[in-house]
Design a protein around this nucleic acid. Structure first.
Lengths: 319, 319
DNA sequence: TTGTAGGCGTTATCAG
DNA sequence: CTGATAACGCCTACAA
């Protein structure tokens, strides 16, 4: 069947230990035997069994990633960077699409623990899942409070929401609405809405926020015929708003101004005219990994509990 | 440290074997001891070590996925479905973003083998990497010939290309160009271009194809002032074409008609007006997994070597 | 510089 | 019905 360390040893006429030494560059080995062994490995097309190795060293070099779906451009891009950085550090990535379902997320969480992952990065929009308390495992949340003492990384949602709302006000909008995704109160992303409400009130305007759902966009327009500004909590919602507006022959940006949130590469290509608040996705990924590695490589817990990264306004033609 | 099977055994006052039996529902156990064991597992918050288990049963329930990037909406959606189906079958997914780089892909391929994955699904646009010949491992390619005898799944690229080109011709375009992605001659995706060329020639038109690259879109317009139809080999390219056209004040669809390829959920939301050839992404994923499982679960190689799934034209407002 | 022995956590085999 | 034992493939003492 599969060629193993022992086979290499036999072929090279040395002991398994020697092969292991060559493999891991440990201890003293004569150049001659080293070459013999290397040749044998080449010859037999040998790959060390990482599973056996993990079992022994009690470390898997596996990181679990739990996000709603790679299909969403924000998560897709975020996961791309996360995987990328992991790879550069010698870690591999176990991917989990929770689809925002609490049951799936719990199952995944258990599965990852069974597989002895060295850490987990999660970002979904579920309410506090208590299972995140139990595992004595390095954890990092992205835009998401997982549990007490689990560090969170997010873009500056509050400032982002403020910038967005303020922009609409500055551009002269009178009736500004907010539509947010399926976010519970426990995610930092909800600060986008909070900021919207604060800014509206500070400007003596009436905040009206909708949560996305079946036919919500139509409802928004039906219920607010005078709407002239919409701050959508992500770019996909913004795109849906734009489409509905077009169908109703509402002129953007003259009669209605729309601003989104995320500013992924994909959005910038497919809908470049959209004004949006761009998240520093790569930096979020870098920070998350850094925080995770800190936990993995040390026992002290002196890491920053909440990291907030700056956002950037990208003005397009929809405002 | 981590609680293991032995700890549970001790706590329950039974042997490790019995615990293992309870865990796997094998052999006869009295209800009483079963309960004792289950309680102990609960008590100690025990999770079986899947690594040790994999080592013994010589199966990891891991599937490797090698694609250029989850950031691209097509791959993002494809990977979403692949992971989803794997999960439903009890398999976990190791994610690899090859970024279309041959060196990365080779490294990943080796890494996956070291990790004893039960199979690999790959779809990137690299030229034949010979390493795909060596591993005696279940493999499936998506839109990509990995090696002799490795099954390939793809959308009907030829028909898709034909439909796209024919549509432009039917709509009265005279100077139709094609822009394709960085595809080598060895991928089925290249049939999109082949079909374009065939249809053009069959209609006594002159086929001109560009391959995407730095400032290619501008070049396309500069070199072909009379262009009135463009078939882009994916939606992102189509989006770039549309943007450039807008900047040049070229009216779409009146002066220029554009059609893309892929029709991902994300594109449909962000750029719903784009006419495109939609790939059956979910079906591609299902077929790929089915072919992989067939290889995993049997030694015979009676599987279909090439599966081609039908595409669908989605007419938007850009044609 | 190299080899031998034991164990990482689990499971299958074979007794009892 | 339950328990002891060996083994999965590798690595680290400890010996030689």
């Amino acid at each position: 069947m599969k060629v193993k360390l022992n086979d290499v040893a036999k072929a090279a006429g040395v002991s398994p230990t020697t092969v292991s030494r060559v493999l891991n560059n440990r201890g003293y080995i004569s150049e001659k035997t080293r070459k013999k062994v290397k040749d044998a490995m080449e010859e037999l097309n040998y790959y060390p069994n990482e599973i056996a190795r993990s079992l022994f060293i009690n470390k898997s070099f596996l990181i679990g990633l739990i996000f709603p779906t790679t299909s969403n451009p924000f998560y897709g891009q975020l996961i791309f960077h996360l995987e990328n950085i992991c790879e550069s550090l010698g870690y591999k990535v176990l991917l989990c699409n929770s689809q925002g379902r609490e049951d799936k997320e719990k199952t995944y969480l258990e599965m990852l623990q069974r597989h002895q992952v060295d850490g987990i990065i999660a970002g979904a929009h579920n309410t506090g899942i208590e299972e995140y308390n139990t595992p004595n495992l390095p954890l990092v949340g992205i835009d998401r409070y997982l549990s007490k003492n689990v560090p969170v990384v997010s873009s500056d949602n509050y400032i982002g929401g403020k910038i967005a709302t303020q922009l609409l006000i500055n551009k002269g909008c009178q009736q500004i609405l907010h539509i947010n995704g399926p976010s519970s109160l426990e995610t930092p992303a909800n600060l986008r809405r909070k900021a919207y409400e604060d800014v509206m009130i500070a400007n003596n305007l009436n905040p009206i926020a909708y949560e996305i759902g079946e036919d919500i966009i139509k409802k928004v327009f039906d219920e607010n015929p005078g709407v002239d500004g919409i701050f959508a909590s992500d770019d996909l919602i913004a795109a849906n708003v734009i489409r509905e507006a077009k169908e109703r022959n509402i002129n953007i940006p003259i009669d209605l101004k729309v601003i989104g949130y995320d500013g992924t590469d994909t959005t910038r290509i497919l809908l470049p005219e959209l004004t949006t608040v761009q998240q520093p996705i790569k930096e979020i990924a870098e920070t998350a990994i850094k925080l995770l590695m800190k936990q993995i490589n040390s026992t002290e817990s002196d890491f920053q509990l909440e990291t907030i990264l700056p956002v950037e306004l990208i003005e397009g033609k929809t405002t």
